[in-house]
Structures are given as C-alpha cells and as structure tokens.
Design a protein around this nucleic acid. Structure first.
Length: 579
RNA sequence: GCUGGGUUCGUAUAACGGUUAGUACUCAAGAUUCUCAAUCUUGCAAUAGGAGUUCGAUUCUCCUACCCAGUACCA
C-alpha cells in the first residue's frame, strides 16, 4: 500500500531563516513535488523565551521569494493558517496554538509507564551539573540518576499529587529504558544503532508555560499531520533514538515517518557550521532576504544583493546534492524531476561564495535583453537617470536624441537605448546592478561623473577589488585627474597622443557613413591605419577621454551610442583638463 | 569527556570492487581583441594514515588521526 507523501518544513521563529534552513525547505519541497505529495509548513514556536517578532513573516516571505510554496500551513495571502478547513484539515500550524493537544499525549505516556513527573527546579539541576563538572564528570538525568532525584518515581504518591496541585514549575520527562539497543534507519546514512544507556530522560512537557518541548511536539504533530518523511538537518541525528522510542511508546510504529538527515552547511574557511557572522565578515549574504534585527542590526540578503531567486535556489540545491550527471544549471521544474535523497551526500558542504556568483552570472546570461532592461530601469533611475518609452514622448520635454536614443546632456534615454546597452554588456555582468558600474559612461559624461557619484574607472576598480592587491603597484592620487583614472592618464595621455585624439574628434565630426558599430569601427580603423598611427595608443587614449579609464567597452561601441556631439564634447573636455 | 555522524584536487562533487581518478568554480599561462571583460585552448591540483579481505580497494572490514554535531525546562 502506497502512503501519500507528506513532508513538512518546521522552522522555529527565533530569527531569520538562514540559507541552510532554506536548503532544508527546498529539499523537502522537491521531494514532495516529485512524489506528487504535500509540502507543509509548521511553525515550531514552543520556546516562548526565544520568540523574535517578524521572524515568522520573514520565513514565509523568504520561502515565497524562492518559489517554495507550501501546499498546507499557509494561506493564499501568505499567512499561517489558524483554523482548520477542508484544505487545511490539520490546522492550526503554529504549535503555540496547539498547546491544548500536547498535554494529554504526555499524560498518556505517564499512564503507560513511559514517562514521569519531575519536580527538580532548574536551579537544582544546574547545581547538580556544576557539581558533576567540578568532579570531572557530566551530570545526566537518566536511569543512573533519576532515582536520586525528585520525581514521581521517587516521591510518595500523596506528595506527587500535592506538588502537581500546588506547584507550577514541574515537567514531564521521558523514562528512557535501560540497556536497550535502538536500531534506526536513515534514508541518507543507512542503519544506525544506539544503546539507550547513553541517552537521557528528556523533558517532554513544561508546566511553567504549558508547552511541549520540541521532541514531544514534533512527534505528536508529525503523527497528527500524517507526515510520511522527515527531512531535516544533521543536528537532529543525536535525538533520533529518542524520537524512535517516542513513536514506540505511543504505539505509532506503523505510521512512523522515515527519516533523512541532511549534511550541514559549513563556513567557507575554517571549521564549523555556517553562521550569521561569516557572511558579515566575508562579504556574502547568509540570509535569503535582508534582515534587520530588533536591535537594529542589518544583515545582507541574497535578494537585496542582486541574486536571482532561481540562481539562489539552484546553488542551494547543488550544496549537498548532485544529479549524478554533469548538469549544473537546473530550473525548479528540473530539480523536482531530478532530485533524489540517495544522491544527497553525507558530509558537510562548505559554502563557496565564488561559485554562488557564477550561478548568478549564468542566470543573468539566460535572461532576455527585454527582461534585463526592465530590471535595469529602476537601477538607473535610482542613480538619477531618466528612462522613457519612446522618443516622441520626450519631445514634449525638450529632449533631443542622438541616433542611439539617448540625450546625454539631459540624462534622458529611451528603452531601446537601455536595451542596446544591456545587449552588448550582458556577458560582463554578474548582477543587474553591475550594468551601472560597467557602462555608467554611456549615461553620464566624465565631466558630470562627480555629480552622479561615479568614480573614474569604476568597473576596473570593481573587478580589481576581487583580487588581492599587488604590493608593487604604484599608488596614484586620483584627485589630481578626476574624473579620469590617474594611472591610465599617467600611462596613456602623452602630448603626442592627445593630438591624435583630437583628430579622432575631427574624424567623428566629419563621419557621414552608416551609424552602426561595424561600419563606424571599420571606417575609424581605416582612417587610423591610413595615417600609420599606433592604433592601440590612440584607442586607449580616446577611451580615457570618453569613459574615464583606458579599459572598458570597445571604442566604436561607445561612440556609436553616445553619438557625435557627445564624443566631441568629451574629447574637448579631456584636452582641456589633461592638456 | 561521552555518544553519534563524517573524511576524493583550495571549494562543490563524479567514479556496479577493475578509469591515465572525471567535471565545475577559483587560480596560472597562451590565443584573440584597441584595452578590460567575455570567449577558446592548455595547465596546477585530491582518494587523511595504517592494517586486513580480494587476483585487484577511492569503493568492503577494523584501528588511528582529524573535523562536525549533540550532550538544556532551545529548536
């Protein structure tokens, strides 16, 4: 008999979900969708002390951004469902709203001899731990110590009843059986055996807040919600024996879910699991979305840093899982088809930020020019550039367009202009925002760089910043030549060359051929060759005058877009400024 | 400490017990180009160590080392 596949992602709203959590959610989602089953989200907020406002909303929004949409647990508006309905027979999905149902299960365990009441105060236990530690031992609440402690196993029943009535900080603990081997099977790790003597009597339910702990809530809810597979992080592996024992104690072995423990996501350098700190330190996000803590501290998010959700999902999928083929780029649909738990690795995966960028670059290249144009427009606008749909509309505001569709003096550009920039700049960009650093001079002349906050040679600098600095490099004072990159001025702007650049201006002014990159380039090169000029020098010096640095886009590409008037104006300005 | 899990190039990973141990990212070199980027080509680089089983071990077993997790009235 086939059981319907039902898996859940059960985050605790104690802070923003980090990328490891998103990956767990993703694997659950992929698994469910592949089997045609349900993906459920359940909020595990049984720790009243660690609740963080906004965390739950953040988690849902992050999952939503990634395209990981729950079948159950969240309604169409992205709100956690609180009342049961046909579509949500298992609601509510927030454990704090289910508190009424856990106690009786805990009591059932006591009635059957699988659990007991414990009256030890937190202070008493802490003291016992401290004493044991001082003696070089570890205090464990288990079969070896429970008979020396204050609980319903050791106290007379009248005393137990009295304490139950009159005090409110007692707990219900699981009575871990003695010397029993628990044999477990993990979908990823295979067969595992553990002796119960190494385990402790975990707290299942707390009278103080009338809430269960993770272990009880988890087992009860998974059972009630008919979960077929539990796919969770490796940090849960040590409590798997407890969970097995719990299923047994409840008599639910037959419907017990199968378990899969995912390897952890590790920090890029050094040892240990990936944490919030690493991202801040190494300049990459660990969170899907930007997060501002209640204390006002902001952490980067993949979304805000310019990653496409598809790229983020793709890179996450490949961290710990592989398709068994050499394919690396997968859409969500393809992932659903290809995913399998037995291709999930056993060892922790170190996250590599470089590879993450590579994924985004690949996705950027796959996008159409139109799509990228739409994404770029708001970026340009945020930098003070005006974008309009058609040249005609602009006539009313007095813009005069060059042949490529731009009016650089008024910083107004048509969508066609933007699209053309995107189209031939695409393969240089990793993020949409890169278009601005790569091609800002196609929108703003060096003369106005300062007003637009553009640094000479921004694209060059951005690229160089990814590499360690060369200690032999000469240090230049950019302020002397701004907006032209000082080291390029030093290298390319010689008196004899500036004269040649002036002639390029003349050539452009008198050019009356076709205004396409190919035609113009051919003509320009012809004219330079004809005069036996050192082409490289002229081109580099010209680029310096037009773009502020000697490296960057092709000369013809630039001139054809900024047009005659602006080319001449820029060269004039450079001559004036640099001599 | 104890318990459990893990270990293939720097990183992510591939390899029914039989391969010159493959691929991608990064890095380096060359080609190309007016420069940079892109692209193409080439290169650097790994089975943690030791026993055993086997004709043959990255793969199976054991030991050692190292790493990780858990060891809460947190999840």
């Amino acid at each position: 008999m086939e059981r319907r596949t039902r898996v859940r992602f059960a985050p605790s709203p104690t802070g923003p979900l980090h990328m490891g959590g998103v990956r767990t959610a993703l694997y659950n989602y992929l698994y469910a969708k592949q089997k045609g089953g349900d993906f459920i989200i359940r909020i595990e907020d049984t720790d009243s002390n660690r609740f963080v406002p906004g965390a739950e909303e953040y988690i849902i929004e992050a999952l939503n951004w990634c395209g990981i949409i729950p079948d159950e647990g969240v309604d169409a508006e992205g709100k956690v469902v609180e009342v049961a309905s046909e579509r949500h027979p298992h609601a509510p999905y927030r454990q704090s709203q289910r508190r009424g149902i856990y106690r009786k299960y805990a009591e059932q365990l006591i009635a059957n001899g699988y659990a007991y009441y414990a009256f030890d105060s937190s202070e008493a236990l802490e003291k016992a731990r401290a004493e044991a530690e001082a003696a070089g031992k570890t205090f464990i609440y288990n079969q070896a110590t429970r008979m020396q402690l204050r609980n319903s196993l050791t106290l007379p029943s009248e005393e137990v009843s009295r304490l139950l009535e009159e005090t409110s900080d007692w707990t219900i603990r699981f009575k871990m059986p003695e010397d029993t081997v628990v044999a477990m099977d993990d979908l990823i790790r295979g067969h595992i055996e553990v002796n119960t003597d190494t385990l402790d009597d975990k707290v299942l339910w707390k009278r103080a807040d009338e809430l269960p702990t993770y272990h009880l809530a988890n087992i009860v809810d998974d059972h009630l919600m008919e979960i077929s597979e539990v796919i969770r992080g490796e940090e849960w592996l040590p409590s798997l024996p407890l969970h097995y024992m719990l299923y047994k104690a409840f008599g639910w072995e037959d419907s017990q879910p199968r378990f899969a423990h995912l390897p952890l996501l590790l920090k890029p350098v050094g040892n240990g699991k990936l944490s919030k700190r690493d991202g801040d330190k190494m300049g990459f996000p660990v969170f899907p979305l930007e997060w501002t803590s209640p204390a006002g501290e902001t952490s980067h998010g993949y979304r805000e840093d310019g990653y496409f959700p598809e790229a983020f999902v793709n890179l996450l999928a490949m961290l710990g899982w592989n398709p068994g083929t050499e394919q690396e780029i997968f859409s969500m649909e393809e992932l659903i088809g290809a995913f399998s738990l037995d291709k999930v690795g056993k060892s922790g995966a170190k996250f590599n930020p470089e590879k993450a960028k590579w994924f985004n670059k690949e996705y950027l290249r796959m996008k159409s020019d139109e799509e990228l144009t739409e994404l770029l427009v708001p970026v340009l606008e945020s930098h003070g550039i005006n974008v309009i749909d058609c040249p005609k509309c602009a006539l009313t505001i007095g813009a005069e367009f060059n042949t490529a569709g731009g009016d650089l003096s008024k910083h107004i550009f048509t969508r066609d202009y933007i699209r053309s920039v995107v189209s031939f700049t695409k393969e240089r960009a990793t993020f949409v925002k890169d278009f601005w650093t790569i091609a800002s001079y196609l929108f703003v002349a060096p003369k106005d760089f300062e007003t637009f906050g553009i640094k000479a040679g921004a694209a060059v600098e951005q690229q160089a910043s990814n590499r360690p600095a060369d200690p032999r490099a000469k240090v230049y004072d950019d302020s002397l030549t701004a907006p032209f990159l000082a080291k390029d001025v030093d290298k390319f702007w010689k008196p004899e060359i500036s004269a040649m650049v002036e002639e390029v201006a003349t050539f452009v002014k008198e050019y009356d051929g076709q205004w396409t990159v190919e035609a113009f380039e051919a003509a320009l090169e012809e004219s330079i060759k004809g005069r036996e000029w050192p082409m490289g020098k002229v081109m580099n010096a010209t680029r310096l005058a037009l773009a502020g640095s000697a490296s960057g886009l092709g000369i013809a590409d630039i001139i054809v877009r900024i047009g005659k008037a602006d080319t001449c104006a820029r060269i004039r300005f450079a001559l004036e400024k640099l001599g």
